[in-house]
């Protein structure tokens, strides 16, 4: 049945190429016995659904390499203290490391307003224009780069949408990924969102200044992180008091130097 069907298609294709016989062939194809045999043709595709994103991410990565810029993708759930961590981090590394920030939110420019006060160029992306997306995709990053002067940027930090699921799936062309996890969240977040903790290169365990007031089991949290991603560095910090920032900033500076050679 499948073969007969296929031949019908071939006939149809054939008359496309011989227009003078078009009417006759078409009649045969449409009116002949072949049309009675209905079949299904299986067509092998074997393509990644997110192919388009991967291609754009590669393009971004090449661009960042050309511009000699280190790109850090910061991810977390909402309310983990990502923006505060970023504000404090920028205050420490500027002006030695010339930085810029792309910040993604579904709505509002609140984060961009806060980050602008640090003096770095900030691009706000609101994904509601893109359908309220739960992550920043590579093409959205590409669009956001237009207003930035890469001559004067060594480090571009992308503050992704607050979400532990989707951003992990989308490569944006970054050099490193960090996830901010706060001690007001469950210890087992890494086990619940393994992909996020697999794709990241370091964890910032934030809000440690609150530990005396919580029943949080920090050893359990670290154990979960190490189960999902053995050997991944965990920096225990408080963005409020800047406790533990030294190790985190050293790691960041070393990562930048490793790429840029300075």
């Amino acid at each position: 049945m499948l073969t007969t069907g296929y031949q019908t298609i071939k006939n149809y294709h054939h008359h496309e190429n011989h227009k003078s016989h078009h009417t006759h062939d078409r009649k045969t194809a449409a009116g002949g016995p072949e049309i009675e045999s209905r079949g299904t043709r299986k067509i092998k595709v074997v393509r990644r659904v997110l192919d388009a994103n991967d291609i754009m991410a590669r393009k971004n990565r090449d661009f960042f390499k050309d511009q000699n810029v280190f790109v850090l993708n910061m991810m977390s759930s909402p309310g983990s203290g990502k923006t505060t961590t970023l504000e404090k981090t920028l205050a420490h590394i500027m002006p030695d490391i010339k930085s810029a920030v792309v910040v993604g939110d579904i709505c509002t420019t609140n984060d961009a307003d806060r980050l602008s006060k640090t003096g770095v160029p900030v691009v706000q992306i609101n994904t509601d224009e893109f359908g309220g997306d739960c992550h920043l995709a590579a093409h959205v990053i590409e669009k956001s780069l237009q207003g930035l002067d890469f001559e004067n940027i060594d480090l571009l930090i992308v503050e992704n949408i607050g979400n532990l699921v989707c951003p992990a799936e989308f490569d944006i062309g970054e050099d490193a990924r960090v996830v901010v996890l706060s001690v007001t969240e469950g210890e087992d977040k890494p086990a619940k969102y393994p992909l996020m903790f697999r794709v990241c290169d370091a964890v910032l365990l934030n809000k440690t200044d609150l530990l005396p007031y919580l029943d949080y089991d920090r050893e359990a949290a670290i154990k979960y992180i190490q189960q999902v991603h053995p050997g991944m560095p965990v920096f225990e910090i408080s963005a409020r008091t800047e406790d533990g920032f030294e190790e985190w900033l050293d790691w960041l500076k070393e990562s930048i130097t490793a790429k840029l050679g300075r």
Partner: peptide, 27 residues
Amino acid sequence: PVFSCSRCQSGSIELLSGRELDIDSIE
């Protein structure tokens, strides 16, 4: 969600599958 070797417990592993989001074929 434990990503260390089931035999020697090493954390130096490579994922072979599990991240697919592929269209295999259409009919």
